[in-house]
């Protein structure tokens, strides 16, 4: 009951942000929601065995897709963000043979290598070739850009959380959890693992691409060094899941919240902050396990705002016999 009330208050706070927040507050909330979305995508894909080190490749692609959609196709900027998410989905489909054919650890490294290649190419051809920030004129000219950017971040963050929750509770999510615990049994049951990995990868690619587009929208410009930056995209996301935890919906949210809070508190000491946060994330993983901080809090306090476990509900004669007992 308490967690439901707290959840509702938080939800109302986040959704109403564009209505009441000052520009600075709205920016912080937008940053938080974008990071939550990316961290949820990383955590969900980690359930399929792949650590998305190449977050920065997909985010940069999303930003580039927004530039093309708005500048070349002359679409409405808000529609352009949606188109960028769709383009990332298409890119995900194209990359399926590379990502899902390799072993999970190999695929994790491959996302890094591929993203590094994309960053190198993006800095030399296309609208970001000259290295200077590329203004998205139609976005920069919007009078209500900050409010729109925050609204887009709200939609992205809440959408990513709901998508991750739905995915974890779906047959695909259940199949992946079963395969994590007992791969032989999962194979013997012929669970749809290939489809589960497909769906998970495509959701993650779409969310991260859209996150890159939302950030580009918020800034009104794109430059290769930021949009394709490993330290700006991958490191915060991995710190968030490392501290908060990988195997829950709430863990990445907690980790992202702590990271954004710390970033605001110690603004201007980026290297020291990164070093401290990474060490904390390593300690959380080593001492608390994959569940991270939230796993410990959840098990101690019994808090589960986004439950993904299902109670066993048997069917048929055996279940009726069990219930009769």
């Amino acid at each position: 009951m308490v967690s439901a009330v707290v959840g509702l208050v938080l939800f109302a706070f986040v959704v109403s942000t564009p209505l009441w927040a000052s520009a600075g507050t709205a920016r912080v909330v937008a940053d938080l929601l974008v990071l939550v979305a990316v961290a949820e995508a990383v955590a969900v894909l980690a359930g399929a065995g792949v650590l998305l080190i190449g977050v920065f490749g997909l985010s940069g692609f999303g930003a580039l897709a927004l530039v093309e959609a708005v500048d070349r196709l002359e679409l409405n900027p808000v529609v352009g963000v949606a188109v960028a998410g769709g383009a990332s989905l298409v890119l995900g489909v194209v990359l399926v043979p590379v990502v899902l054919r390799l072993s999970p650890v190999g695929a994790s490294l491959a996302t890094w290598v591929g993203a590094a290649a994309a960053a190198a190419v993006a800095g030399r051809v296309g609208p970001l070739a000259d290295g200077a920030p590329h203004d998205i004129t139609a976005v920069a000219a919007l009078g209500s850009r900050d409010a729109l950017a925050t609204s887009l971040a709200v939609v992205l963050g809440i959408g990513a959380v709901l998508a991750a929750h739905g995915l974890r509770r779906s047959p695909s999510g259940l199949a992946l959890r079963a395969a994590t615990d007992e791969p032989e049994a999962a194979a013997a049951l012929d669970l749809p693992l290939r489809r589960a990995r497909w769906v998970t990868w495509l959701v993650a690619a779409t969310v991260v691409g859209a996150a890159g587009a939302v950030t580009a929208f918020q800034q009104g410009s794109v430059d290769a060094a930021t949009a394709f930056s490993l330290t700006a995209w991958t490191v915060p996301a991995l710190i968030a899941v490392g501290i908060g935890g990988l195997d829950s919906i709430e863990g990445p949210m907690v980790g992202a919240g702590l990271w954004v809070l710390a970033s605001e508190l110690v603004d201007g000491h980026d290297v020291a902050l990164q070093l401290t946060a990474v060490v904390l994330a390593l300690l959380c993983q080593a001492v608390l396990g994959p569940g991270g901080l939230w796993g410990r809090v959840s098990s101690a306090a019994g808090l589960r705002p986004f439950p993904v476990h299902r109670a066993y509900a048997g069917r048929g004669r055996a279940a009726r016999r069990d219930q009769a007992r």
């Binding site: 650590l51 899941v241 490392g242 993983q285």
Partner: peptide
Amino acid sequence: SPAHGALAALP
């Protein structure tokens, strides 16, 4: 399980 790949790569 290969699903532990992400846990191996994160640290």
